[in-house]
Design a protein around this nucleic acid. Structure first.
Lengths: 110, 110
DNA sequence: ACAATATATCAATTATTCATGAATTATGGA
DNA sequence: TCCATAATTCATGAATAATTGATATATTGT
């Protein structure tokens, strides 16, 4: 992941609606959600939501698939991992002794 | 970490100069860097850098310490871990089977 | 107390982002 | 083909963010 991709990812996640959308899609997992459903669930106007979905899409944080006349959106888990790795990578550049605790304490809340 | 703290973190990291600063401080590790050094290294005007450092500071991504007339900045590794955990937490909310691969592949590049 | 250095704050300008109404494109069904 | 539905694109105005010169504050050394 280059720095511009990382910037786009952070930018996409730095706005309330878009972060809400991403979390919603993460929770929806492999099922995803239709654009219209997302707008309704978060009570955001349809075109506003479309613009925000486009930002997430361009940042690579979500994917989409057309099914008939609906378009289904999915969180991109690979992109999420890439963002986490990007910060990790920086972390490990100089000082492994600071890096390891971060990884160790990164518990999965499953 | 609540959503507002997460938004502030993502916002802070979503701008070129600030992401550069954060990476620089992560690499500098426990030694940190002085405000002036950071501005010089990244070739950014002193007051512009000061404003950007304040954004990172308010977001909790960096700490600072005054040493005489210089002010030394440090990456906050706890905050970094919190941001990573925040996304992990979402990940695990619904579907552990999607979450685990993300963690497994999150290799440390030490 | 004074001068020099390091950093932060202020005020103004410019640039970017956000939300929205209106128009457009794409698909499926009658 | 015509209509209805789902979603995107466009143009615009309002809000927010970024940069900068000028100024203020804090600290050290003389």
């Amino acid at each position: 992941m280059d720095i511009n991709k990382a910037l786009a990812a952070f930018f996409a996640l730095s706005q309330q609606t878009r972060l809400d959308v991403f979390r919603l899609l993460v929770k929806a997992g492999a099922d995803g959600l239709n654009a219209g459903e997302i707008a309704a669930l978060l009570d955001v106007k349809q075109n506003t939501m479309s613009a925000n979905l486009t930002v997430l899409l361009n940042a690579g944080m979500v994917r989409n698939e057309r099914h008939g006349r609906t378009i289904r959106y999915f969180a991109d888990f690979d992109a999420m991992r890439a963002v986490l790795s990007f910060l990790m990578e920086d972390c490990c550049g100089g000082r492994p002794e600071l890096c390891q605790p971060v990884i160790d304490e990164l518990a999965c809340a499953c």
